[in-house]
């Protein structure tokens, strides 16, 4: 499994420099404006989402899936590695949010970190089986629909909680701390579904 994990890391790290440059520009801008950690964290979440989806496109382009499935560890280890990477990215997102909100002197950093980390896990729990089923290219179209629905739901939730103004500066209610747990549970179900899809799939 480590081989699959390393490959995914190398592919993501290839675009990392580009994203880090963008982030540095935003941080410099933040010095001259009113600092809001959520903007940066949201950026990291979007980067993480597109990176995970991008891995499936890389797989398609180089016909990697069939090759990886013919390796001794096989297709199941390939799925395991991608889910482990997703989990690690989610932890990274939460830690990043906590760090920058601490640096920015914002209150309520823990629920906000839970929101971003858990939200990413929920997104990945939906995305990964879709990608395994449709492949990277087709899955993009399907995900546009899913993201639109998820966006509408999040928007409704934010309005209900009156978070739309000054998102990131308010203290989120403590139930948000449970979001990562919900995300992990969803990811576990998603992992089983993806294993089933890949087990049956003709590559």
């Amino acid at each position: 499994m480590t081989g699959f994990l390393k490959r995914d890391y190398y592919l993501i790290s290839g675009t990392l420099k580009f994203y880090v440059l963008f982030m540095a520009a935003f941080i410099i801008l933040a010095v001259f404006t009113d600092f809001n950690s959520s903007f940066l964290s949201l950026y990291v979440v979007v980067f993480a989402m597109s990176s995970v989806m991008g891995l499936f496109s890389y797989d398609d382009m180089s016909r990697w899936t069939a090759y990886g499935a013919a390796a001794p560890a096989g297709r199941m280890a390939m799925v395991d590695a991608r889910y482990l990477l997703t989990l690690l990215i989610s932890v990274g997102i939460s830690l990043f949010q906590m760090l920058i909100s601490l640096l920015g002197g914002e209150a309520g950093d823990l629920p906000m970190a839970a929101l971003y980390g858990g939200g990413f896990l929920l997104y990945a729990a939906v995305t990964l089986p879709v990608c395994y089923h449709f492949g990277g290219t087709k899955a993009r179209t399907v995900m546009i629909l899913i993201v639109a629905v998820m966006g509408a739901l999040i928007g409704m939730g934010a309005t209900t909680l009156q978070l739309s103004n000054g998102f990131g500066r308010v203290s989120l209610p403590s139930p948000f701390l449970l979001l990562p747990l919900a995300g992990i549970a969803a990811l576990a179900i998603s992992w089983r579904v993806s294993l089933g899809i890949m087990g049956r799939k003709e590559l």
Partner: peptide
């Protein structure tokens, strides 16, 4: 196994291919 098309993504370096393949093949 050697397929008809190179299965390694264009973005990868040759050395990186060796590094991750070490974790794939006993």
């Amino acid at each position: 196994y050697v397929p008809d098309e190179c299965p390694f993504s264009d973005q990868l370096k040759v050395r990186q291919v060796g590094k991750f393949c070490a974790g794939l093949f006993p």
